[in-house]
Design a binder for these strands. Sequence first.
DNA 1: GCAACACCCGTACGCTCGTCCGGGTATCCA
DNA 2: TGGATACCCGGACGAGCGTACGGGTGTTGC
Lengths: 122, 122
Amino acid sequence: MADHVHPVDADRVARARERVPSREDAVAMADVLAVLADPTRARVLHALDAVEELCVGDLALALDASEDAVGYALRVLRGAGLVTNRKAGRVVFYRLVAGFPAPLREHCLRALVDLTRGEPAP
Amino acid sequence: MADHVHPVDADRVARARERVPSREDAVAMADVLAVLADPTRARVLHALDAVEELCVGDLALALDASEDAVGYALRVLRGAGLVTNRKAGRVVFYRLVAGFPAPLREHCLRALVDLTRGEPAP
DNA sequence: GCAACACCCGTACGCTCGTCCGGGTATCCA
DNA sequence: TGGATACCCGGACGAGCGTACGGGTGTTGC
């Protein structure tokens, strides 16, 4: 370990310290992003964003994924408060929650598609 | 396992199948988001976004984090091509890469701060 | 040159996440 | 009412991530 005894640039350290989010806020941000940072969950959200409502089995069909994987993804998304379920008989339909955060939908989902397509890796 | 023998709503499945990103693209998206989905890395990016350039030790000071944690975060960020390093003597300065993706900076960093502050958990 | 410094690297450990598997509940059809 | 369907839930397993530690490289100052 080699801790700085004295800061090299005290001014910048002070300015950075003011603007950097607290550790708690950073953890909250990381939790939100971690929910999206999974292929299955992201594709589930894209599918629901495209066709409004789908049941679990159809979702697995549309994604070519196992029903277990989709079920787990939906559980996590539900725990994060991003999707809602509606029971119609023995079928459970899922959709994006009404107040789905617009920034996530616009940028972290749609804009990110173009980003990943456009730039492979510098 | 209970695979759907027939889709409940074949039309919506077909439409969703067209619009959902492929598994490969979803993995690429998840990789990008996973880099941001870490408190230390997110705070490092915020600090560099605020004051342009900082060395490792000052960065650890500004974040109240161990130098190991910051060093590992910087290694990951460098591997993802998001930061650059400049050696000045025995001090190494880091800054955001020139072509830092604007969507990430604008929305996944700045907008997400407001998002996490506004809504704790529905 | 020698010592101290700033930082990097590889390894080992602990922990969480995602998947698989078995059983369970509620619903529909015959 | 019995069986099949659609889905949920629990624990078990393997894999990957983040942290801590020890040793290493290059640089500065005496």
